[in-house]
Structures are given as C-alpha cells and as structure tokens.
Design a protein around this nucleic acid. Structure first.
Lengths: 294, 294
DNA sequence: GCCTATTATAAATTATTTTTATATCAACTG
DNA sequence: CAGTTGATATAAAAATAATTTATAATAGGC
C-alpha cells in the first residue's frame, strides 16, 4: 500500500472535496478518485459517501477509523525522516525553555565545549508544553523540560534532575516587599505579570489559584523573564517564578510561599522512547546526566 | 512510499539475508535489492552495510532507526485492518479474564441479550496481562481487565468499576481453617497453588511476598479457578484469590488478610484510545458501564 | 432547460516494480 | 590456484500500477 493514498485520504476527510485534495497535492482529480477506490478495495469497505443532495461528503465509521490511523502513520513517517536526517548529520537538537537555558545550560555548555561537542548541538527554544510536542514530532532529539509533576508521557522518557520551589516576586517598593514569606491567598487582590501559557509556571499557578478559590487578575503575559521582571520592578504587577528563573536585582524582592503541598518546578531530561540515539547524542545525554545529575 | 518496502526492510534487519527475505515474501531476490535502494534514496542514507568479509550484513544506525518506525507503521496498519473488519461486521470482541467472566459477565450478558446485542459479541479469554496486549494489537475491541493499581496505559483508556480485596483460601481441614483473619507473614511456610503469571493475582501476590521478605513455595500454577480450588481442597497447598474469584464450597475456607495498605483487585473497562467505536460497540460499552457501574 | 460544481469512467500515457538473465565478489575447496 | 558456492548487484524486458486526458454523469441553482 502506498502512503500517498493515506495522505490523500487524510486530506479528503478534512476538506471533504476531491478536487480540492487534488489541488493540494498538485495532481488531477481522477487521481484522488482512484486512490480512494484503492483504499476501499484494500480495506474492503466504503470510506466516504457522496451525498450529492446536500453537496456534502460523509466519512463513514470505517473512514474515520482509517483517518485516525492514517494520520498516525504519516506522523510516524515524518518523524522517521527527521530523526534520520539528524542521525546522518550527527546533529543533536536540544530543546530548552528559557529559564532552564539561563540557569542550567551554561554549566552543560562548558562541559560540552571542553569535549568539543558544542559544534554539533543546536538549541531549540520554547515553553515546556510546546517543546514536548516538538520532541514528539522530531523537531528536537533531547530536551530539558520543566514540569509540576514527575513527567511520564506517552512515547517520551523523562529523567528528573532537579526540583525548585516557586516564589513570588514583587517590586522593592511594593507593600509586601518587607515580608519574607506569605500565603498565596494574600495575593487575592494583586495584579499579575506572568509567562504565557506554554510554560509550566502556568499549570503550577493555576493549582495555587484553584486551591485558594480566586481568579487572579493577569495584566500581562510575556515570553521573557527580563520583560516580566522589568514590569514587576515598575509595579505593573507581581509575578510567580522559580528562584532560579530570576536574576538578582535590587528593585525586585523574592517572597517564599508558605502554602502546604505546593507544586514544585521539576526539571527533567526528556527524549523519545522510539529514538535510537547516535553516539554523539548519547554523549550529549551522558554530559547532561553527569552535569545536572547532582 | 510503499509499505511493502518497509515490510521487506523490517524482515531484512532480522534475517540479514536478501535472498531469505525474497523467499519469505515470495518474490525474487533483486526485488529486495531494489526495495532497499528505494528506501536508501528516500531517506538519503545507507541502511545496511554488506560485510562480505565475514559474510554478514550490518544494519546502520539510520537502519535501526528506520526499523523501529517501520515496525510501528506496519503494526498500525495491521491494527487498522483488524479494526475496520470488526467495524464492518459490527462484531465486538470483548476480552475477559476467567475470574471476571465468571463473576461480572453473567449480569452483563443478561442485559445484552435483553437488547438483542449478544449475537454480535465475541469473547476472547486470557489473563489480564495477555489481554492488554490483545487489545493493543486489535484482537479485541473492549476488555474487562483486572489490575492492582488504577490502570493507565499508553494508548489504552481504562475506567475502573470495582475493587475487591484479595483473600487466602485453605482447605477446611487445614490448621488455619479456624481462623477468620490472618497476616500474610503467617503463611511463610505454606505451600501455594496459584494462577499462572499472566494474571494480575501474581503482581499482587508478589507485593505481599516482597513486603514480608520471604519467597513462598509455589507448588503448582494453573489457569483455572476450579483446578486451583480442587487442589486447595485436597490440601496440596493454599491459594491467593479475590473473594469473587472463588465459588462457595464446603471444603475450602476463606481467610481475610489483615496487612496494612494491601493491593486490591481493581476491575476496569478498557479500550484503545485511537479506536473509533461503532454504534454497536458503544452500546456494549454503555451496557458495561450501567451494569457494572454500581 | 441550461449552467455549474462535483465526482466517475475509460483509454492512453507514464511511472514503478518485478522478473529474467547474468555479472560480480569474496570465501572456500580440493 | 582454478573451480565452486553463496550472496548481492545490475541491466533490460515484462508486468503492474498510478496518473493524466478527455469526457460522461449527476444533482442543484437560476
């Protein structure tokens, strides 16, 4: 069976239009007709019904089933291409969320450079949630990810190497700045400046708000710690970060949270379980483990 | 890309012999040569090295990587075929471990019959561990499985519907028969008759033995409760089952376990997450839920 | 009733895969 | 060391399969 047919079919279930699919793939319309016929013969079932009355195309139950698997197969093929490309180029793509990149990566980079392995390393930046997907679909080979619960994902292997508590940061001029420790509930009427939602900070933050039964006012979301800290310094709002996420600055004060059973920021090394790591990638992994492992 | 090539290649990585692969698929040898060439062109890499010196074939790193994905893709295709066949025949295959079949299934069957849905139901028997795999690779559509921890499997969805404590069963003539409750540690010197290892009872039993630091003497393993109970009645050994797993008989006595934090037998309805259930299968699922749900 | 949008069909063309026949290559054999 | 053997490669021919071209069919809209 040709995977092209699966691609045609997958597209068809979405566009519901043979001619459109043909256009999408740069082939003529009968090609699609034939492809669907081949699949219907292969699986001995009708996949789509042409409802000419309402000018609509209905995907049968079998069709839906095939579409689910067709997409899985095409994704797997894509992943295979990406992985083999990295393999042959001996390139390792390491996914790094900015906080981890700032705090943990310098140490790792020093070791890698000492072993002359930094040249074949490419970094890919993004929030932990986004990187998890990038790892799944082959854009990255390894990643250092943050999470609030020990990671255990379908098709990914995770090794936790550090845990950090979350903290509150307020401007030095803020009324709470004199306090060293507070309860999250005391922040009910504060304005917040936060990371955008592809960061794990969000899920931890949401756990706090859910437990304390209030909807905080979020005045701004950013992708960058510096931006956030500048806004905090200017009293635009307070923020919620790990201790390691923030540089030391005079105009911002760090407060410990006193709540029970707080979510923690767990840092893990993550990679796909189906991925055969190259010697170079294994070396990078070994450096990550020894450098971060303690 | 043709999936046939992936099948040829997957076989080649195992047999490491082009001619043998050709034989396996009933084609001529150059067909395999060409197929591998096509894949090497598609992925722009060498997949195998012909080491003529030691008359051996070496699979490259890229080749290993491709093999992993090739097998995943072929398995997915197989699954697709099986699922669509069940779909079109409106057949539902329900996996049932014997204990669950005896205890919970009669109730379910009555309801299904009342709705005229028993005819399209086929059952597949086996231990929970084996059935889990059968469910994954499409031999079954739904299953009622036993487990000792709430089920959460890659690619499967599980809904727990009952919990049962494990019990010890001894012959009425056994010295412990007068007791109603015992600690597992008191069984240190007993002989055991148990289910074979594809049943969850084993993992629960192992938890007990690990916690109590002794290796029990297992004198016999069987697949059938009746066989086990007959042996227990004749004092060949004692056994470890759920209360629901055993019929009432005069010659065997049930003992409660007093240990803290015991593993429980958790019964769950399980199905694949990628599986689009047919109306008939959804009906079966609905009956399972309502019948077992309380 | 004619026009339009959409899918189907059939024959011709093109592309791809497989076979047939033969070559190459290295190890083994007497 | 020539000849044999087991394994894979190559090239041309044959067989299959996919795609295009051209056209038909169908149903709804105007």
């Amino acid at each position: 069976m040709n995977t092209k047919d699966l691609a045609y079919f997958s597209d068809l279930t979405q566009t519901k239009n043979f001619s459109k699919v043909a256009q999408d793939f740069g082939v003529t319309q009968p090609t699609i007709t034939m492809a669907i016929k081949r699949l219907e013969a292969e699986f001995q079932t009708k996949l789509v019904l042409r409802d000419r009355t309402r000018n609509d195309l209905v995907v049968t139950a079998s069709g839906e089933q095939l579409a689910v698997h067709a997409r899985a197969i095409l994704a797997e093929l894509d992943l295979t291409h990406q992985e083999i490309t990295h393999l042959t180029q001996d390139q390792t793509v390491l996914g790094l969320p900015p906080i981890i990149e700032n705090h943990y990566f310098p140490r790792v980079a020093a070791h890698l450079q000492a072993q002359g392995m930094l040249a074949n390393l490419q970094t890919l930046e993004g929030g932990s949630v986004w990187l998890r997907q990038a790892l799944r679909d082959g854009q990255a080979d390894l990643a250092l990810l943050g999470s609030t619960a020990p990671l255990s994902y379908k098709s990914l292997v995770a090794e936790a190497f550090d845990r950090q508590p979350f903290r509150i940061f307020v401007a030095a001029t803020h009324p709470l700045a004199k306090r060293q420790r507070i309860y999250f509930s005391e922040l009910k009427h504060e304005k917040f400046v936060l990371f955008n939602s592809s960061f794990v900070h969000n899920s931890a933050f949401n756990q706090f708000t859910r437990r304390n039964h209030f909807r905080p006012e979020v005045v701004f979301r950013a992708n960058d710690t510096h931006v956030i800290m500048n806004l905090v310094a200017q009293n635009v709002g307070v923020t919620f970060l790990t201790a390691i996420g923030a540089q030391h600055r005079d105009d911002v004060v760090q407060l410990e949270l006193l709540d029970d059973a707080q979510p923690e920021f767990i840092a893990s090394i993550v990679y796909r379980d189906s991925h055969v790591l190259t010697p170079a990638q294994q070396q990078v992994l070994a450096v990550l483990r020894t450098t971060l492992g303690e």
